[in-house]
Structures are given as C-alpha cells and as structure tokens.
Design a binder for these strands. Sequence first.
DNA 1: CATGAATGAGCCTTCATTCAT
DNA 2: TATGAATGAAGGCTCATTCAT
Lengths: 212, 212, 212, 212
Amino acid sequence: MDAGEPKFRRRKADRPDEIVAAALAVFAEKGFAAAKLDEIARRAGVSKGALYLYFETKEDLFRAVVGRAIAPNIVLLKAMAAAHPGPFPDLVRGVARQIVGLVETAPMGGVLKMVVGEARNFPELARVWHDELVAHALGAMAGAVAAAQARGEVRPGDPRTYALQMIAPLLVGVLWRETFTPVGAPPFDLPSLMTQHLDTLLGGMLTEEARR
Amino acid sequence: MDAGEPKFRRRKADRPDEIVAAALAVFAEKGFAAAKLDEIARRAGVSKGALYLYFETKEDLFRAVVGRAIAPNIVLLKAMAAAHPGPFPDLVRGVARQIVGLVETAPMGGVLKMVVGEARNFPELARVWHDELVAHALGAMAGAVAAAQARGEVRPGDPRTYALQMIAPLLVGVLWRETFTPVGAPPFDLPSLMTQHLDTLLGGMLTEEARR
Amino acid sequence: MDAGEPKFRRRKADRPDEIVAAALAVFAEKGFAAAKLDEIARRAGVSKGALYLYFETKEDLFRAVVGRAIAPNIVLLKAMAAAHPGPFPDLVRGVARQIVGLVETAPMGGVLKMVVGEARNFPELARVWHDELVAHALGAMAGAVAAAQARGEVRPGDPRTYALQMIAPLLVGVLWRETFTPVGAPPFDLPSLMTQHLDTLLGGMLTEEARR
Amino acid sequence: MDAGEPKFRRRKADRPDEIVAAALAVFAEKGFAAAKLDEIARRAGVSKGALYLYFETKEDLFRAVVGRAIAPNIVLLKAMAAAHPGPFPDLVRGVARQIVGLVETAPMGGVLKMVVGEARNFPELARVWHDELVAHALGAMAGAVAAAQARGEVRPGDPRTYALQMIAPLLVGVLWRETFTPVGAPPFDLPSLMTQHLDTLLGGMLTEEARR
DNA sequence: CATGAATGAGCCTTCATTCAT
DNA sequence: TATGAATGAAGGCTCATTCAT
C-alpha cells in the first residue's frame, strides 16, 4: 500500500493472521500432535523461527487458532439476539440460513474436529468454546423455544433438547463432509439437508394452531 | 511360576484383545499422534516390546483398534435387516433402542472421535468404516424410509437425508458428552434425547394417515 | 563377570557412573552451555537417547555431576576431623598432603571451574558446595587455627582468613594448570608449591615458642 | 535530530566502549555460551543489529571484551616497574595496595571467571592474558623476590612460587565473593585479608636480619 | 549509522522401534 | 514369548546473524 504497490516483503501487522490461518488449516487436517510447525510455517510463507516472534509455543499457537475461531461464530449469537420476535418458524429458518451460510464460508468442519478431538488434551479450550459460544447459542435457541412454548406455538418438551435436535443434522453433515466425502462417500447438500430437516422437525414441534 | 494359581492367569490368546482394548482407550482419549505406546502397554499390563509381538507398528495397532471397533456396531445392521416389516415408527423406535443401548455400553464417543479425527491421516480407515458400516446402516435406514414412503407412511423427501436426521442428535449428544460435559457443561440424557427427538421427527415425517 | 568374560554389552548398573564421568569431562572443558549432549553421549559410549534413561534433562545431568563431585572431597573433612591432636604444623602438613593427593588424582581443576563458572547460573549448586563441603572444610581448619591460637602456638589473626591463606595457593595452582599451562605457560609443581608455601606461611603464623 | 539537547546524547565514538562494557557484564555473569546478544544489546542501549556494526561476531565481541580487560591491569606492571628500590616489604605492600585498589574498582571477579572458564574454548585469549599480563606481572614480582634474596632480605625458595603465594589469597577471595557470597556465605574483607596475609607471609619469607 | 523482523542451522528432547537376554 | 534397555530419527525451540528499511 505505502509507496504504490505491495512490496515483496509483507507488512508485519498481517503476519499473525496469516500464521493463524495456515495453522488452522494444518491443525484441522492433522490434529495438534501430528501437525508440524515446519508445514505451518511453509504454508504461512514464513520461516519456522518467525512463528516464535508471534507465539510462544506450539500450544500457544493452537490456543490462538482455536480461540480466534470462535469469533466468526459470535455473529450467530448477535443474529439470534437481534432476531425479529415473529413466529417461531420464521426465527428458526432465519437463524438456520445464517448458520448454513457460515458453514459454507468458514472451515467449520476443521474447527469442529479440533475442538472435539483435542478437548481432552486442551480442556480449557473446550471450556472456552462452551462458555463463550456453544452454551450461549444453545441457550438462546432454547430460550426461543421456551418462549414459543409459552405462546402455545411449540409442543411440550425440553427446550434445550429441541435446540440440539435442530442443529445436530447440520453438524453431522459437516463432519460427514470432512470425514467420508473425501473417501468417496456421496455428499450431503447442506442447505437442502437443513431445509428438509427443519420442515420435518417443525412439523413435529409445532402445535396444531401454530401449524395451520 | 506361581505354581499355585495358574488358572486365573489370563491366557495368552487374550493378549491381543487386551492390547486393543487398552489402545482404544488411549487413542480415543489422546488421538493417534499424542497416544504413547508406553501408556498403552502399561494399561494393557504388558511391556512395550510385547506390543510388537502382536502388531507390526503403531499404525498397525491403530488400524486394528479402529477396524475392530466396527464389529460391535455390525449388530445394528443385522438388527435392521431382521426388523419386522411392521409400521415404520415401530421399526425406527426399535432400531433407536438398539443404538441407544449400544451407545450406553460401547465407547462410541471415543471411536467417533478417532474415526472423524484421523480420517485425513488414515483415509483407508474412513473408507472401511464408511463402506462396511456407515453406508450400509444409512442405506438400510434410507431403504426403510423409502419403503415407508412407498406405502404412504412417510411424506416425500430424500430418504438418505431422513436417515441422517434421525441419527444425528444422538451422535451429537455422544460428542457433547465427550467434549463439553467433562468441562462442566450440563449433559444430555441420551435415551430421553432420542425419545423426544423421534417423537418430534416422526411427527413431521409421517403422513396424516400414518400418524392417526 | 557373569559367564566368564565381559560381554560387549556393558552392565546397566555402571551406566550412570560412566555417563557422569563423561559429562564431568565435557562440562569441565566446555562449561554447561557449550557442552553438547552429543559429545557426552559419545564419550560415555552410549546413544544420546540413553542419557535420558538416567537423567531427566541436561541440567539434571549437570547437577548430578557437580553434586557427585563433592563426595571425593568429603574424605578431607573426615581426615581433618580424625586428625591427631598434636602440634599445629603437623596437622596442617598432614591435611595438606591429603589435599595435594586429591588434586593429583581427581579432576579438581575442572570441578572448580564448573562450580565457580556456573555459580550464577546454578546458584543452588554453589550453595550445596558451600554448605556441604567448603564451609565445613574452612570451618574445621579455622577451628584448628583457633585452638592452636588458644594453645599459644599461632599468632593472633582471623582464623578463617588463616585457613584461606593456607589453601589459596594450591587452588590458584590448580586453576593455573587448567588455564595457562595448556597455552605454554610454565607449570607449577603443586607438591613443591605447597611445601614451600606451608613452610613460609607457618613461619609467619607460629609464635616464637611454637617455632622453636 | 532532537535539535534541542544534542549535547547529552552520547557520541557515536562511545558506542563500542558501551557495548564492550555491557558485554563484559553479561559474559562475566553467564559465560560465553549462555550470554545472549539480545541482553547485551539491551544493556548497552542499542539494537541487536547495532552490535554487528562494531563487531563481526559474538566471538569477536568476546575477544574484544577479554582483550580490553587487560588494560586496566597493565597499570600494575608499570607501578611495579616504577617501584622504588627500597626494602622488599615496602615494595610488596605498595603493590598489594594497588592490586587491592584495582579489585575494589574493576570487575575482576567476572574477568577472572571469563579467562579461566573459557580458556579451553578460547585458548588464544588465555595466551594473550598470560603473555601480555600474567607472565609479566608474575615475572616482575619474582624478579623483585630474587633481588631481595640476592640482597639477603628473603629466604631461599622459588621466586615465582613466592610470587604466586603472595597474590593467591586475594584471587581466591575475589572468586569467593563471586561464587559463595551471593548464596549466603560470609564474605572476606579483601583489604584485611591482604593485610593479614602479607604480614604472615612476609613473616615467613624474610630473613632474620631483614625482619629486624 | 541504526533498527528489528526474519532466517535457519543447531541443539535438547521425545518416542516408535529394535534386540540381547 | 516376554522384557526393557538402548537406539536414532524427528521435531520443537533458540539464538547468532542478516538485511530491507
């Protein structure tokens, strides 16, 4: 930018993000222990030593990667908080559209694998993910369900469980894409999957009146 | 030695199974790369060298672990194949009961993590799992759905997607138990979860006539 | 020993000592930081990994080396404690003979360099050396001086300082041998040095009566 | 720049000396290998890169440090050369006073440690120290002893050894201060130590007539 | 001259694998 | 078979050195 065109030396401020992006890719693919700093450095276009200018240790880098991967998902929380107070199905479909959009753009499969796969080795990361994102999201959706129940829109049942039911097929679809599609399994089209799922599930969740 | 009580000594023939069991526990907890043969040997009650009497390499052991973990799940395929040809909901609930029973007894969470987490590092294992178990199970259930649709019991929709919808919350519940419950998150009761889910989902899947 | 002659595989029990001996040589020559585990392993006739069967870290090995080097010097303390209660000069010369003997056999120069050179980096080692050996030795000799003063054998003066005066030339002679002799400086013959020094020093320390 | 107060800015010409001073402190404390250029640069108040404007390598800087540390000691040689040709004890005490003065002002402990501790890794430095300083000083003192012997002031004995005997306690006292005092050992007061030592030693060195 | 981000060779440490017993 | 001491290749991390600015 300065002095006309991008110099072949990248600007320092971008380095950490570039490293985190490269690290995310490698950690997601290999897992923490199997990921090699050599490969992360190579993919980030820097030397191995440069990693240590920005992160203390490999674990530190991993923490940064997993921690920062929360941010893009936070938008969902805000979207849900700002969701119009209309009929329950509209809310659900609106949120679902956002999530599907996120899944299509962000490397959610890899992040999921990282969080789930390393939860035992990095419990504090699982805790952060739960406390700062998952619990909020699940709680918000459960709250919406409970409100809909109070309005007579949704049948009785545990709201938190309803929330899990709604999102689960998408998560499994993402893991499927990550796990079985690369070895030749037929993929699931996630938007279609989600559409059919919500049609079906809402069909069973809504009361007679709400369904009409 | 110990000329007294030789009967209680485990027979040598059990060694491989004991090793695989110990390895399953460690691999499930740590992942492939972070698992140490020292720990596997210790948990199996044998020396490190003994592992190599039964398995060529660490990868070999891992393959054996993941491969053998298919077997307990195969019963599901047989159960589905032998399922009575009655009404669709009965079939679904019967199968679900079996799966939930399996989930309660077998370390399915750990196995899931292994298969998903190492799919990129061991693609042939993902392939085996898909080809020998997952595809069959999903296909069988999709076939049942299609048959029910043909009989007018189930509404239109992609049968394979329906199958995924049915199982997904249970899988996510298992991963939840593995990931977030250890760090203080409230657990999901899997049988209740499955009951509520099938009630809801079938409510949306079944046609008017079938639902009556 | 077993089965006739020494098998080409050395017996395990000796390994730690062999490693410590090799490490002493390398640490004494290079200092802690410049010493390479590769070289220590090579000189000990084992692989680099074998070091870690007996010592946790390089620092641990260093601590073991410096710690064990105290032992051979402890004999001096015992010799001094058991010293005959005769005239002061006899005591001094007897102890000196022991020390000179030690200096000729043990690698005292290297050990001295290690303790002094790494005192700032490993203060706990300096403390151990002082508390377990040096303070005792200096104190014992100072005690003997004080007793001799009480008996009227030695002139007034600080006993601890007298003790230092007695030993200092030998220590400097050892360091000289370590430092300047290898680059062509004329050596000092330590026994002669010590003889002349004690003759001179006692000449100045003893009272008229004692000197007679 | 800083058009306001340029006068207080250190002149560039001082940089090398400032760097050498900082390096001396760090090398003396840590030893060559454990010393980090980062710390030297920080203590010198310059950037790491700036070190390379004045010194080719870390070894070069070390050589400069050790080499320049000779200079302050050279004054001793001159003092001894210019020493009045009076009685031997006066000469000795005069020189001792100079040395004690030097020890109190210059970081002689650290320098000693550097020279002794790195003699094996940098033999040429040990050689320079010996050839340019130590040999001269020891030789000068030995010469004075020999002259005094010729005058009948000093008893028979190896003059070079006598010289070593005279200086050794001070050197050991310096090393003691460097090594054991920081870990709680009682210190030696070097001037008192030297006074008592010379009183004692001269008492044994001088002939009857000279002592009178 | 001066800076400090970047490099990469080198070292400590780990751990799968081997092998003498 | 079984052991566990020993190996050595591999990888995380450090730090002297370089170089674009």
